[in-house]
C-alpha cells in the first residue's frame, strides 16, 4: 500500500533570473516497509526531493501526499505537527542536541509528542539497546563517535513511531565499519518494525543493501531498480 505519493513535483530556484530546476516533474510512490535508496550525482535533486517529501520545503508545483494528506494543504504549524507524528529524520551531520545526553536526545521527541514520562522510559531503553547504546545513556554527543551519534539519530527517528524515515546521506560522515553497523541496524528495524526508510546516498554500501534504487539526474527520475 502506498504511503507516499509524489505527483509531478517541481522545484525551481532563482525563478526571476536564470531558473534552476532542482526537481523537474518527479512522480513517485513509496509503499509501507520499503528500504529505498535515492542515488545520483551531486546537485541532481536528491536532498531537495527529501526536503519536499519531509515537508521541510515547499515545491514550486506538484504535490506530495502522505497517507492521503496533501502537505500543501497544511498550515505551517500543522505541518510541523504532522512531521512530529509521521516523519522521522536522519541527517548527514547527525544533528543531535549537543546539551542533551543520548537518552535525553531520544526522549525529547517523545516529550514533544506529549508522551507521559513513564511511557517514554519504557520506549527509550529498548530502542537504545537495539542500536547498541545502552551503555552510553548519559553521554553527551561530544562524548560519542560519529557512528554512535548517528545511531542515536536513528533511535530518535524511530522513537516517534513515524510512518517513514527520511535519511539524507546518513553514512557520508562515517567510516566503513560504522557505516556497515548503522546500515545493519536500519535494515533490522525495517524488517522487524516494518518502518519505511528512504535514503539519499552516494554510498555503494547503502545501494547494495537497498531493495529499491531510484536514480536522479538533473532533477528527474532517470532510472529505477527493484531487487
Amino acid at each position: 500500500m502506498s504511503i507516499i505519493k509524489v505527483t509531478d513535483l517541481t522545484k525551481i530556484y532563482n525563478k526571476t533570473r536564470v531558473p534552476v530546476y532542482a526537481l523537474n516533474g518527479v512522480s513517485l510512490e513509496f509503499s509501507e516497509g520499503e528500504f529505498t535508496a535515492i542515488v545520483g550525482p551531486s546537485g541532481c535533486g536528491k536532498t531537495t526531493f527529501l526536503n519536499m517529501v519531509g515537508g521541510l520545503d515547499k515545491p514550486s508545483s506538484g504535490a506530495v501526499e502522505i497517507s492521503g494528506t496533501n502537505l500543501a494543504s497544511l498550515k505551517p504549524g500543522q505541518l510541523t505537527d504532522f512531521r512530529l507524528h509521521n516523519i522521522g529524520f536522519i541527517f548527514q551531520a547527525y544533528n543531535l542536541i549537543p546539551v542533551l545526553t543520548t537518552k535525553e536526545n531520544v526522549e525529547f521527541i517523545l516529550e514533544l509528542q506529549g508522551v507521559p514520562a513513564g511511557e517514554r522510559e519504557k520506549k527509550i531503553l529498548p530502542l537504545l539497546e537495539s542500536v547498541g547504546l545502552s551503555d552510553k545513556l548519559n553521554n553527551r554527543p561530544n562524548e560519542l563517535s560519529g557512528g554512535q551519534q548517528q545511531r542515536v539519530a536513528v533511535a530518535r527517528a524511530l522513537a516517534s513511531s513515524p510512518k517513514f524515515i527520511l535519511a539524507d546521506e546518513p553514512t557520508a560522515n562515517l567510516d566503513s565499519k560504522s557505516a556497515d553497523s548503522l546500515l545493519d541496524i536500519m535494515l533490522k528495524m525495517n524488517e522487524e518494525l516494518k518502518v519505511t526508510f528512504i535514503f539519499s546516498t552516494h554510498d555503494s554500501r547503502v545501494m547494495k543493501k537497498a531493495r529499491r534504487i531510484i536514480t536522479f539526474e538533473d532533477g528527474k527520475v532517470a532510472g529505477e531498480e527493484i531487487r
Binding site: 521541510l56 510541523t80 512531521r83 512530529l84 507524528h85 509528542q113
Partner: peptide
C-alpha cells in the same frame, strides 16, 4: 533540526 523533527514555533 528542531523545527524539522517537529518542535513548533511556540516551543
Amino acid at each position: 533540526m528542531l523545527m524539522a523533527i517537529g518542535m513548533n514555533g511556540r516551543k
